[in-house]
Design a protein around this nucleic acid. Structure first.
Lengths: 196, 196
DNA sequence: CATAAAAATGAACAATGTTCACTATTTGAC
DNA sequence: GTCAAATAGTGAACATTGTTCATTTTTATG
């Protein structure tokens, strides 16, 4: 079937999204300005709207990619590690590392909110479920007798706590901790929460 | 000295800030639109700029009030409680309660970021220090032999973990937990982190 | 009362998201 | 191969919003 049109459409969508990602990386979500993005991608303003309903939808697409990248990093990080506690610690370090290296992407992921009444994209729901699963697996090994519901809750708690540590460590309002103390506290958290 | 001028100036500043707070409560920080605020407060656009450098400064002023309110709630909550563990649990519940009751204020506090290069207001630094102190005091009682530095780090960790639980519980992307499970997990977190 | 200082106003400007009538290109049927 | 329909792409025009500033109104002071 239709070859050229489909290819063109996909390339446009891809290049617009890539431009948006670069914009967020460079200047946060405020830098995702339609004219800028269009010019950067090599198209006109209207073409952006052909592929993304509006600015929020475009940023949401960036967030989807961000979630994928976090998942990739986590997956790679625990590859070859057997000990479940080491897995959890590695996941924690990887999560912090990502937030530090890609601060603007990470902040945008958690501070961009769709207008009221707009549904959260499926890709985001799925992305967070996958994230939690990375934590659930080693946690299950450490606590084999947790019920399914309790494991789900505990998984969320562990991830949330880690997320909070990372969040606050990036907040300028809170006086920063030295890097090595940060690692020590993260490991403290994981050990306390993962223990039987 | 100048009576009427000073009084007028202060009242204007107060009414503008109150209008901004109401706007955030009703519609989040996107609702802080200068024309709206000015009209709501009963002044012209220019008068808003007489008292607040720009939109970001006005929102930052709202955040200062939010921090004060959180501190007030926390202070009231632990009044009369002796047991340090109970104090920590009460603080946790109070923090979650505030975030739920004043969701838009709370979200704005943690998602509004000043443009690069703008210094964080002193009131915010002080506010977060005070918040942490509420946690530090009972934590010190439970772990009397922690060094000052370690206590500071652990305090941050406890607060951050709690903050993460609250954050994620408000994120639509993450499937929600029933209210009672939420409380159980929060208590679990506090017990694990506060224990010797 | 007269002059200076401060408070308040709102028109004007700039930046930005969004729409839509229009052009160019591609597709598919004959 | 031609042509009509469908799709991709364009950019001017509009609406909204943050911000500035010359001007007016009110207050303080000698």
């Amino acid at each position: 079937m239709s070859g050229i049109q489909r290819a063109k459409s996909e390339e446009t969508q891809r290049r617009v999204l890539e431009a948006a990602i670069r914009a967020v990386e460079a200047g946060g979500m405020e830098a995702v300005q339609i004219r800028r993005i269009a010019a950067e991608a090599g198209y006109s303003v209207g073409s952006v709207y052909k592929h993304y309903e509006d600015q929020d939808a475009l940023i949401a697409a960036v967030d989807t990619v961000t979630l994928e990248r976090i998942k990739t990093d986590m997956s790679n990080a625990i590859e070859g590690i057997e000990d479940p506690l080491k897995q959890l610690k590695t996941l924690a370090r990887t999560y912090l590392e990502f937030a530090r290296r890609h601060r603007n992407l990470w902040v945008t992921l958690f501070t961009h909110h769709l207008p009221d009444g707009r549904p959260v994209p499926d890709s985001h729901i799925q992305g967070t479920v996958d994230l939690l699963t990375y934590v659930a697996v080693p946690l299950k090994k450490l606590n084999p007798d947790l019920t399914e519901d309790l494991l789900a809750a505990r998984t969320r708690t562990c991830f949330s706590a880690l997320h909070g540590l990372v969040s606050i460590s990036l907040e300028e309002r809170f006086v920063g901790l030295p890097g090595d103390e940060m690692d020590r506290e993260m490991m403290f958290l994981v050990e306390r929460l993962a223990a039987k």
